[in-house]
Design a protein around this nucleic acid. Structure first.
Length: 258
DNA sequence: ATGTCCGCGCACCGCGGA
């Protein structure tokens, strides 16, 4: 079973690229982030024609997450994090797909830092960590994937010294991510590729993709019972090179069938 | 500081967000 995550940076502007990528790579399950579309503008029909049933949590202009599947419609478990009721941003969607619990997240960017946006990011990470802990306690097979907006280590940025003040790499952010991993989650990409330079995001400026000036900020966190089922993991860099591409590349893992 | 792309609206450019 192949599961992918893709920050599309606007699903309306990205539809052609998204459909091409689905057609060429055929993932079973896909988590999307940054739909930048209200609930009623989600292209459910075009995706259905491509073979994918979907659930989504839209929002006008910003954010927005979706879970697509061609192995049975995702059974929604929740939208939004528990205990985060005053959060009106569409950033978390969770569903059961093919026996797996899939959490699709778009963690706040947090810039400029310090400031209220950074505080919001750290609060969101606290709520997320609490929820992640309760999911682990269930002993179910769980995947938490999406755009974490976290550069975990120096290996994950092309010039880490340029990012030390940035909300994606500040000590508080990294510490929060480390604490999350310490609960028992496995960072799938790093587990299979411990020393490799792997980037999932390249900004649109200064030919960042052409210079391989990227960041690794889209992650797969696996519950302990899935760790030994992980067969492969990678980044579809090709899709980042296409005309009208997102600033993120799709990231994927392959799990041994349960 | 720069750069680029997306969606929005006091809309055909300028702005916030990333």
């Amino acid at each position: 079973m192949k599961i992918a995550t893709y920050n599309v940076n606007g699903i309306s502007a990205r539809l052609t690229v998204l459909l091409r990528w689905l057609q060429e790579t055929q993932p079973d399950v896909v988590c999307l982030q940054e739909l930048k579309a209200p609930q009623e503008k989600f292209p459910a029909e075009a995706l259905l024609e491509a073979g994918y049933e979907a659930i989504w949590q839209g929002q006008k202009s910003w954010n927005g997450v979706a879970i697509l599947s061609k192995v049975g419609k995702p059974e929604e478990i929740r939208r939004g994090l528990p205990g985060n009721h005053d959060d009106d941003q569409s950033r978390y969607l969770e569903a059961k797909v093919n026996g797996l619990t899939i959490g699709c997240l778009y963690l706040p960017n947090g810039n400029p830092a310090p400031g209220p946006k950074f505080e919001y990011k750290l609060r969101w990470m606290e709520h997320f960590a609490q929820h992640a802990a309760s999911l682990l306690a269930s002993k179910e097979p769980i995947i938490l994937t999406g755009d974490y907006n976290v550069i975990p280590t120096e290996l994950d940025a092309y010039k880490p010294e340029r990012w030390v003040e940035d909300a994606l790499f500040r000590p508080e952010t990294r510490a929060a991510f480390e604490q999350l991993l310490a609960q028992g989650w496995t960072d799938a990409i790093r587990y299979l590729h411990p020393k490799e330079t792997i980037y999932t995001y390249f900004d649109y400026f200064r030919n960042a993709f052409g210079r391989n000036a990227g960041l690794r900020i889209d992650h797969f966190l696996l519950s302990p019972n899935l760790k030994d089922k992980l067969k492969a993991a990678g980044v579809d860099r090709e899709a980042r090179s296409w005309e009208k591409s997102s600033d993120h590349a799709p990231v994927w893992i392959e799990l041994e069938d349960a």
